Amino acid sequence: MRRVMLEENHESPRNRYAIQINHLRKAYKNIEAINGLSLKVPHGCFFALLGPNGSGKTSTLRILATLAAADSGSVIIDGIDAHKNPREVRKRIGYVGQEASIDKILTGEEHLRFTADLHHLPRNQGKERIEAVIEQLDLREWIKRRAGTYSGGIRRRLELACALLHNPEIFIMDEPGVGLDPESRHLIWNILKGCVNQGKTILMSTHQLDETESLADQIAIVDKGRILAEGSPSELKEKIGKEKLTIRTKEFCTSEEAEAVSTILKSKIGVEEIIINPCQGYALTVILNQLEKTPEIIDTIHYAGLPLFSYSNSKISLDDVYLRSTGRTLIDAELATVGTRDLRKERKQAMR
């Protein structure tokens, strides 16, 4: 685990954190996208916002990047108020949005030159930085071609190259793993890890558990515009328990049948908590605070004369942390948001 820089003696209280979010709120008509969210991201930290689509991650990051205004609350980036001084904030951050920001007509090189001009880089410095990011992102083969001919992975590399160009200390990235081929994913993850090893700060939103586990120093679980849990991956999992046992009494059982099993098992030694998941046919997730308790739990169900369709045990995962925090898995939360939001309307409103 990388060391997160929190050296209070060398930093003023104002600059102790790379990013501070205080009681942030944002609504799109009758939809509250961000609901009083507060967060502090230390310098030199790889921080992940983990949550399903529609949980408020993108709205939060757009406000941090000064691309949208909050209804209330404050955002401090490296000691600078993002609302009062957005221009200074933009100098300090590199932003990669979830949606493609590449002009299909321009070549990769033209994108980089344009980005260098936007950041007012001196000509010689701009040329040096363009060459550096081309090599860093392995873009030499494509850099003279129009971006419209790029694959999704190469487009993502170019977007990251544009974000890296002015050498910012803080990166804000919205779902950077979406649409990546394995080669681009491996390359980009290594670059991001290298940035953090150099003391830079990354705040990334994601709904992918694997990249969160492998990359993040700290995680905040987000749902319905609120932070429900926060800590390192290991800390969050250790707070849950030692092991997880998933039980199905029937292929499709009722809530009453699941409650009956839960009532019997709650009194067993080693059972920390039982979560009934209605989205998965009222399956029971039994959190155990002791290892090797599965045989005893299964015997209890048999002795009670209750049916048992299937069971499996596994280590505690981040999905279990999310399940305990919200009562549903991350996949179930993703499915629940399908068709409930008009993202086109929300984006249109965000641009006003």
Rank of each mutant, 00 (worst) to 15 (best):
K144Y: 10
T115G: 01
D117Q: 12
D103G: 01
F114V: 04
L118D: 03
Q125A: 15
R145D: 11
V133P: 02
Y150T: 07
A116C: 03
R155L: 14
E110K: 11
K144C: 03
R123G: 00
E88K: 13
E128V: 08
L118M: 12
E99R: 14
D117A: 13
T115D: 00
R140M: 08
I154R: 01
L106H: 07
G153M: 08
I105S: 12
T107Q: 06
E141T: 13
I134T: 12
R140A: 15
L139G: 04
I143T: 06
G153R: 05
R140C: 00
R113S: 04
R140W: 05
T149D: 13
L158H: 02
G153I: 09
P122G: 09
G108M: 04
R156N: 06
L106C: 06
A132H: 14
H111G: 07
L121D: 01
L112G: 05
I105Q: 13
V133N: 03
R146S: 11
L160W: 08
A100T: 14
D117Y: 02
I154N: 10
I102W: 05
F114G: 00
E135C: 10
P122M: 07
K91L: 12
L158K: 02
R123T: 12
D117C: 07
E88S: 15
E109V: 02
N124Q: 15
K104N: 13
T149N: 11
G108L: 05
A147H: 06
G108K: 02
R90G: 07
I134S: 03
R155C: 08
I154G: 01
I134P: 02
N124I: 11
Q136P: 00
G148H: 10
R92N: 12
K104C: 08
Q98C: 05
L158W: 05
I93C: 09
V89W: 05
Q136T: 12
R146I: 04
L112M: 05
V89P: 05
E159I: 01
K104D: 15
L106S: 05
Y150S: 07
L112R: 06
E99N: 13
R123A: 15
E99D: 12
E131G: 14
K144H: 14
G152W: 10
R155P: 00
F114S: 09
E159W: 07
K144F: 04
L160P: 00
I105W: 11
H111K: 06
I130R: 03
I134G: 03
S101T: 15
I154M: 13
L112V: 09
E88R: 13
D103K: 08
G94E: 06
L160R: 02
K104T: 13
P122C: 09
K127S: 10
Q125G: 00
P122K: 09
L137M: 15
I102V: 15
I105A: 13
K144D: 12
W142I: 02
D103M: 06
R146D: 09
E135W: 03
V96M: 14
K144G: 08
A132I: 00
H120A: 15
H119P: 00
R129D: 04
G126A: 14
S151M: 10
L160Q: 01
V133R: 02
R157P: 03
A100E: 11
L137Y: 00
E128R: 14
Y150P: 06
A116T: 03
R156F: 07
K91Y: 08
I154D: 01
N124H: 12
